[in-house]
Simulated assay, not measured.
Amino acid sequence: MSISLSKGQKIDLTKTNPGLTKVLVGLGWDTNKYDGGKDFDLDASVFCLNGAGKAASEKDFIFYNNLQNTNGSIVHTGDNLTGEGDGDDEMVKVNLSNIPAEVEKVAFCITIHEAVERGQNFGQVTNAFVRIVNEETGAELIRYDLGEDFSVETAVVVGELYRHSGEWKFNAIGSGYKDGLAGLCKDYGLM
């Protein structure tokens, strides 16, 4: 049975699911119809962070042009250019047991490609969510629906997996950035 989270909630992942090592992180969204005339292209990205909340190098930034981290424990399954249809728009495979020891947090983000040039923001995005699925059984374990709290933001940190006392937990973040991907990269130490 899936557990539905609210913004700011934290939950055990591996402690309550003994033996869980491989998960799929599904991210999805819909866009509002508006008269701007330009297509939306939203992208999922992942940052592998150390204890200080910083990425050690650009290899710790996983997105459509860098589909996996150095050891392949986190793999982005590919870019969806339209986001059409129901369900997950983009997915990330995570092998929790193989994530490098120096990685304390894995942040999952959604950004709008060329948001400024296209005049787009998360105020025009609906039904955004992140969900964690047991890769072996297909069972949805955790789901966080972001709600419609955004207006000018062009990037959102939806949630993060993090280590705590040898176990993995999930934190429903839902924090928006008006500076888009550049703002995320700067905060995570890549600029």
Rank of each mutant, 00 (worst) to 15 (best):
G26Y: 07
G28Q: 14
G28M: 09
G28P: 09
G28S: 10
G28R: 15
G28N: 13
W29I: 04
W29A: 03
W29S: 06
W29Q: 12
D30I: 05
D30G: 09
D30P: 07
T31V: 06
T31M: 06
N32S: 07
N32R: 14
N32Y: 06
N32G: 00
K33W: 05
K33M: 06
K33I: 04
Y34I: 06
D35R: 14
D35I: 01
D39H: 14
D39M: 11
F40T: 14
D41V: 02
D41A: 00
L42I: 03
L42K: 10
L42P: 10
D43N: 12
D43Q: 09
S45K: 03
S45M: 01
V46N: 03
F47S: 05
F47N: 08
C48T: 02
L49I: 00
L49M: 07
L49Y: 04
G51R: 12
G51A: 07
G51E: 11
G51L: 04
G51Y: 02
A52C: 06
K54L: 13
K54I: 02
A55K: 12
A55D: 09
A55W: 12
A56S: 11
S57Q: 12
S57T: 06
S57E: 10
E58S: 12
K59R: 15
D60H: 01
D60S: 00
F61W: 15
F61K: 10
F61T: 04
F61S: 07
F61E: 14
I62A: 02
I62D: 03
F63T: 00
F63N: 03
Y64K: 08
N65W: 03
N66D: 11
N66T: 05
L67R: 15
Q68G: 05
Q68L: 05
N69M: 02
T70R: 06
T70I: 04
G72I: 00
G72S: 03
G72D: 03
S73N: 06
S73F: 01
I74C: 03
I74P: 02
V75W: 00
H76K: 10
T77Y: 05
T77W: 05
T77V: 00
T77K: 14
T77L: 09
D79C: 00
D79F: 01
N80D: 15
N80K: 13
L81E: 14
L81R: 15
L81K: 15
L81S: 12
T82P: 11
G83C: 07
E84R: 14
G85Q: 13
G85F: 09
G87K: 10
G87N: 09
G87S: 07
